[in-house]
């Protein structure tokens, strides 16, 4: 007993300092996430400010012409092209709209099938299979969009007398939509399963068919969760890079026709920053301004979506 008491006198002191050290390391590790965010925000804002010193921010935000590659006039502002981001925004929105038109209904209906119609054994097989889609690297989707889907659409368009560009927004959007199906489906599935069974039973007990119960009671009740999921999906689709880099166009065209070739914010970031570059040219700096825009928009979407989803979960907990 005496030995134990003696031993434990020195030990706590040592243990105390070791534990202080461990705790400091733990806190340090968890602040890496903060540092990353600070790093992102700081580098984007710093480079963007340098860009806006050369090209006025209003030209960037409201300009209708984007052609960073060519110098139109030697003495022109920025002396290397036009930096109006509107065509890029429209292109991004066009492709995202196509993608969400596919992923929204198909993802939601897949979730309806899995949660309301499929037996548990069918569900346990189909759900993981569908989720393989989410695990496929985006570069593979890009390859498929560019090599398979785009030529199909082009030939299909020719057959019915439509002029489909070989780098159409449609091809990129369709494939991006399919990539997003499991994402929408899994979030909608969670939202639908969170709706209490008693509501479904209540609807069935007054004589609804299953689809009436789903359409008029279950989906409306799950709507906040589904909407939050769609916002998250939108943010992913807007930030998606490889599919558009490989399957969408490079030249900025202000159009809403999905059969045309358009370019997106992410495509331009990649094009501007790959290959030989001088780092101080407005051309490369504009990529950071685009990055800042992308980051701001996706962040706003994510924050809103996470808030909606959180509030929804608490409602039925």
């Amino acid at each position: 007993m005496r030995e134990a008491t003696q031993g434990s006198k020195a030990a706590p002191q040592k243990r105390f300092w070791t534990e202080r050290l461990i705790m400091a390391v733990l806190i340090l590790c968890s602040s890496v996430a903060i540092l990353t965010t600070i790093g992102i925000v700081a580098s984007l804002i710093f480079e963007s400010i340098r860009f806006f010193q050369i090209v006025p921010i209003t030209d960037f935000l409201f300009g209708l012409h984007w052609s960073p590659q060519m110098a139109i006039r030697e003495d022109q502002v920025g002396s290397s092209g036009a930096f109006g981001a509107i065509p890029l925004l429209v292109g991004t929105l066009l492709i995202s709209a196509v993608a969400l038109t596919v992923a929204g209904p198909v993802g939601l209906m897949s979730a309806v099938f899995l949660s309301e119609y499929a037996s548990s054994s069918v569900r346990s097989k189909i759900k993981p299979t569908l989720e393989i889609l989410a695990g496929i690297p985006t570069v593979v989707y890009g390859f498929f969009a560019a090599i398979v889907v785009a030529p199909w659409l082009r030939r299909g368009g020719e057959a019915i007398g439509l002029d489909v560009s070989s780098e159409s927004a449609l091809a990129a959007g369709l494939v991006m939509g399919i990539m997003t199906i499991p994402f929408v489906s899994s979030i909608s599935d969670d939202a639908i399963t969170a709706v209490p069974t008693s509501l479904k039973e209540g609807a069935l007990a007054v004589g609804s068919t299953r689809s009436e119960a789903i359409k008029k009671v279950i989906i409306p009740a799950a709507l906040p969760g589904i909407a939050g999921g769609l916002l998250l999906a939108t943010s992913r689709v807007i930030g998606e890079t490889m599919i558009v880099v490989m399957a969408a166009g490079l030249t900025a065209k202000l159009t809403l026709n999905p059969l045309d070739a358009v370019t997106t914010v992410t495509v331009q970031i990649v094009t501007l920053l790959t290959g030989d570059q001088e780092f101080d040219s407005p051309k490369t700096l504009s990529a950071f301004a685009l990055g800042l825009m992308l980051f701001t928009v996706t962040l706003a979407l994510n924050v809103t979506a996470l808030k909606i989803v959180k509030a929804y979960r608490e409602q039925y907990d």
Binding site: I34, I40, S43, L44, V270, L299, N302
Partner: peptide, 25 residues
């Protein structure tokens, strides 16, 4: 809770933005 929100949002930041971070930093 700031760290938590931060981590959740970081998980949804487009991957290309991380590329920009790598390039700049």
């Amino acid at each position: 809770s700031f760290i938590e929100v931060n981590i959740n949002n970081l998980a949804a930041v487009p991957s290309i933005v991380f590329g920009l971070l790598g390039l700049a930093v």
